[in-house]
Structures are given as C-alpha cells and as structure tokens.
Design a protein around this nucleic acid. Sequence first.
DNA 1: AATAATTTTTAGGTTTGTCTAAATTAAATT
DNA 2: AATTTAATTTAGACAAACCTAAAAATTATT
Lengths: 219, 219
Amino acid sequence: MNYSISEENYIKSIYHLQQQADTVTTNSLANELQTKPASVTDMLKKLQVKKLLEYEKYRGFRLNATGTKVALNIVRRHRLWEYFLVTKLGFDWDKVHAIAEDLEHVSSTELIQKLDGYLNFPQTDPHGDPIPDMHGKMPLIKQVSIAEVPDKKTVVVCSVSNQSPEMLALLKHYNIAIGTSLKVNKHFGFDGSVEIKISKQAACVISEQVAKNIFVHHD
Amino acid sequence: MNYSISEENYIKSIYHLQQQADTVTTNSLANELQTKPASVTDMLKKLQVKKLLEYEKYRGFRLNATGTKVALNIVRRHRLWEYFLVTKLGFDWDKVHAIAEDLEHVSSTELIQKLDGYLNFPQTDPHGDPIPDMHGKMPLIKQVSIAEVPDKKTVVVCSVSNQSPEMLALLKHYNIAIGTSLKVNKHFGFDGSVEIKISKQAACVISEQVAKNIFVHHD
DNA sequence: AATAATTTTTAGGTTTGTCTAAATTAAATT
DNA sequence: AATTTAATTTAGACAAACCTAAAAATTATT
C-alpha cells in the first residue's frame, strides 16, 4: 500500500498523540497538524475506509495494528534521515526536523534499507529517540531520568523530553548533548537538584526540573 | 519562490525537451510526462502566469531566464542525489533515477549545499551528466565520443548517450563504467570499429556504433 | 486553394485535501 | 435534570491537478 503525503502526516501525528493519551481527539489532531477540525474528520473517514484506524463518531480514534505499522515505518524513515543529516551532513540536531519531515515521504524501501546500512544501523536518532526496525520493532533502551539515577553512577545521555529553545539553550550552557557521558555525584533532597560531572569539566548542579527532563541509560 | 511537485516536474521536462528542439510542443511534453495534452495546456497557463515561460497559443513554448534557473536548480538536486545514491549507498547507476526523482523535490537550499560539500562538489552525476552549481552554471566538460579520439590516447569515460538496457548490458560486458580509464589503440577505417584497452584487461574491439555513444574526456 | 488530418485549446467534470458556517452530539454547569 | 458550553460532524464551496469530449487552429495533402 502507498499513502499520500497528507495521509502519512495524519498517520504520523495520530501515532505521536497516542503515545501520550491512548485515544486521540479531533481537536488535538487538528491542532497538531495546524489544520481545522472539519478537515480532520474528513481524513479520518478516509483512513477508516482504508482500515488503518478504529473510529467511532464523536468518540475519538486510534490506529489499529495496520495503521501502527504504517506509522512506525514513517517514524523509521524520519529518524534515519535525521541521523543522516546530523552525522553525515553536519547539521545541528535541533535543525533537522523540518528537512526530515520532507525526506520521510520518499518511500522507497530499498533506499531506506541501504541508508540504514550506510549509517550502520543506528538505534536512536540524534534526539535519542529509538529508530524502529524494518518490521516496526522498536529497540528497547531502558532510559531513566537523571533524577532517578543512584548517586555515583556514570551514565550516557540518550534523550531529552523537553525540546523547547529554553531547554536547548540550557543544555548548550551545561555542555550536554545526546551521547554525553556524565557522572551523577549527589542528589540534594531539599530541592531535588543534582550535582553532575561531565568528563574533564568542573562539576555543576542542575535543578530537579532539568534532571527530570534529561534521560540517560547505563553505560 | 516555491513550486509544487507537479510544477517542478513540468519545468524539468520542458528543460530537457528544450535541449533537443529549441521550442517544445504540447504533445511532446504530454508524452514525456505521461499525461494528456489538455493537462499540459492547463499547467502552461499557470507557469505563464508565474512568468517562467514564453508561451503563445498553438505556437509552442520555452522557458525564459527565470524558468531556466528554476529548472537548473531541480536538475542540480536530482544529479546530486543520484551521485549520493551511487557513491554512498551503493546503488547501481542505472537504478537511481526513480528515487532521485522523488528526492529532487525536497527543496531546502541548506540541505543541498551541505550534501554538495559532503559529496566533495562532484562535477558530474553517475551517468556523466554535469551538475549545475548553486547559480545554475554548468561545469564545462569537453567531451568527445571514442570515435573522435586520436589513436594511442588515454581517456576517461564520462558519459554514455544511449542508456537503453541493451547498451548497459554491453557496457557491463566490456567492463566499462563512468570513470573508467581506457586507451584508444587504433581505429579501423573499414567499419569504424575501435580497439581499446582497459587497464589490466586484454585489448578489445568495439563497433563504431558503440564508440559513438561512449563519451570521454582527456585525462 | 480547398479539404483532410493533426495538434492544441476550451468546456465541463472528477478527486484530493482543504475551508467556513451551520447542525449535531457530548460534556460541564447550574 | 435542564441548560449552557464545548467538541465534533455535516453540508456545501474552493483550489490544484488531472481527465474526456468537443471545438478551434494549424499543418499536410490532394
């Protein structure tokens, strides 16, 4: 099956919204896609006819197994291209999203297979988000926020849940990026702040709010 | 200015047809694009309004300066992607066209700039066709068919004008590809056939017809 | 030069994806 | 429980890009 760019964008957005709430509403999807609720309803009918989702009028909707597989394929393409743009073309990781948004719709399976191999089968994209395999299987990467890491443990940053410009500025200031290895020295019970140490830099303290948004995995 | 995928396909096809005849007809364009003449007329009106071509009813049409620039940009993107697909992803050069056809419509200038740099500013695509630069300037590569090369000269294959499956099979048989270096030993006046020698392989004779279709430049 | 054949354009219709405005259903409030 | 508010859907239009069939213009043939 082949889907239009528009259909793919809807499928992908539904998939993303489902990660948070398990059933998606017309308004939230319209908002996500910067379109009008009436347009969403129109497209839902189409996707339902194509048997990609469960949909009951006025009741919300969610992707079924087929729809999820399609979504994961789009996510796979998106994240592989992001990885390519950062590691090969030298883009900053916070600037690749829009371009990957276009590239993800080029749907040659052979292209994606070869790209995957060329990139050496990366497990996560530059933001630390896992890249589904050909069959839609996500690599399991146990990730924990810094707030939950025991003292004295060394970990590797693998994703950042809040990607606002403010957060990115902060990360740049602390010199933290995906792949950065750091040691969690001590948690301060009073305000939940955490002292961390990055390789040869001086130790520094991050607030609980920041600690909760930086995810890491054991080394 | 930004153009739709459809508009870009029309512009590119007009450009290609202009290379041969200098004014393009509705039917030939319809044929090139696998569409109907009526659809072509519709699009021509649009492109005329956007001031990309000279068009007189019933009289044929051609891209103006602006249109040509747009076309060259699309050609540039197409050829850079083809080069990428072959040299980085390991595709066969005769299989990349369709995929590049999709990739060429991703129109981020920054993407193409970085891709160009990553590929080391190639002058020609895998078929030996020149890649226009950012401003639409084509690199001048003096190319001559093997039939015209003087005896005893060593040259590098840079393009093949006939790209039929039969021709490609022949090239594969002789072990000739873009970039292959070969020595032109001797022209046989009787039938125009030519003896060539490729690096460590035994010398072989190609027919005049083949010699006329393989273009080379001096080393 | 008149007619036949071909090419191109116009007229009007279809599909996809969007929209606004109105109607309907569900949820929240009193 | 009745009513107000909010969310969703329907109805009807619109633009882009395509189509078929008919009309108009050009080119070729006799």
